[in-house]
Design a protein around this nucleic acid. Structure first.
Lengths: 183, 183
DNA sequence: CGCCCTCTGTACCGATCGGTACAGCGCCCA
DNA sequence: TGGGCGCTGTACCGATCGGTACAGAGGGCG
């Protein structure tokens, strides 16, 4: 029943961390192998497409995680306020209170964007639209603009928190956003 | 009187564009040379410290431009509303309405941050503090939080606009921010 | 003119890049 | 017990990496 899990899925979190820390260009095969604890042979057996396929797999895994943990609840949870609260909680945990960067956001800023354009766009579009849906069900008439503002502010918060090396910036932002959205 | 200008300053805009598009790791000497229209010899004569010194020079140039065009007016212009309006106008032009990424923000997201930590932090701290100063003079009691929110939102707007490949996202954001700040 | 000093292109360096080839290990199932 | 196969490490590939050495071009000035 349950897939044999495989080297592939087991390696993805480690690969994700390398891409997150060094960017696509900076993530060398040597780094990828070391972090994954695998030789080149194993890595290329699991990802015949090489570095590009590894990055795609990582983006897919991130997208799937956000879809399951954030977007689906935002769309389907009967109580939109609860779903929004859960979103902030998940975001805080995922980004380690601002210490961890957003891989998708980082890719969007460089020319790696072109290579992974649809995955990157889908990630943010799904987030923005799911949040707008929840806000609409919560009775906000400015749902679309507010959702866009929120998603974008989270990305900016990560940039600024890392730039100033001050996770509090991210924490403060999340608090401000949550009161703006949930009252 | 006026410095002989030199190859150095002439090359900086071209170098900046390469770092902006490809990141620090992705900006190879070959790309840097080609875009600057100089051979390795010339480039290393102007920047004996190599790639790292080029990036530092680019960050310094960006910092100086923002200081002169944005931060100083925010601090010194008698009419804070006018200075804030000028800031939005300059930001819109500089980032080409959201089509162009922020080099400093991109560096902040990867591990290049450590290498250029003080320059990156100074860029954002100066911006946030200058804007807070103007807001305080404009009579806002939430000046500090509002300034932080604004700087961070601009960075997030660039991420989201590039991710969705939709410059309108950035334009809408600037409009929203300007009404929030200047009424 | 002849010297010097700034700037330039080119050849070259060892290291590392992403990627491939392949021999063998161990496990599962017949 | 013995194939077969999923997985692994290692050696190797040409290309490119960031950086250096150096010979000369060019202009200013004595």
């Amino acid at each position: 029943m349950t897939k044999p899990a495989g080297v592939r899925e087991a390696a993805i979190p480690a690969l994700a961390e390398v891409f997150r820390e060094h960017g696509y260009a900076g993530a060398s095969l040597a780094l990828l192998c070391a972090r994954a604890g695998l030789g080149k042979g194993s890595l290329y057996h699991a990802f015949p497409g090489g570095k590009a396929e590894m990055a795609e797999a990582v983006l897919d895994a991130i997208g799937a995680w956000f879809e399951a943990e954030l977007y689906a609840p935002l769309r389907e949870e009967p109580d939109p306020h609860a779903a929004i609260g859960r979103m902030f909680h998940a975001v805080k945990g995922y980004f380690q209170s601002g210490r961890r960067a957003c891989l998708v956001g980082a890719f969007a800023l460089s020319d790696d964007r072109d290579r992974f354009a649809t995955r990157i766009a889908d990630y943010f579009r799904a987030w923005r639209d799911a949040l707008a849906d929840a806000l609409r069900r919560a009775g906000r008439d400015d749902a679309a603009a507010l959702a866009e503002d929120t998603v974008l502010a989270i990305q900016g918060g990560l940039v600024l928190a890392r730039a100033l090396d001050d996770p509090m910036v991210f924490g403060r932002l999340l608090a401000r956003l949550e009161t703006r959205l949930n009252g």
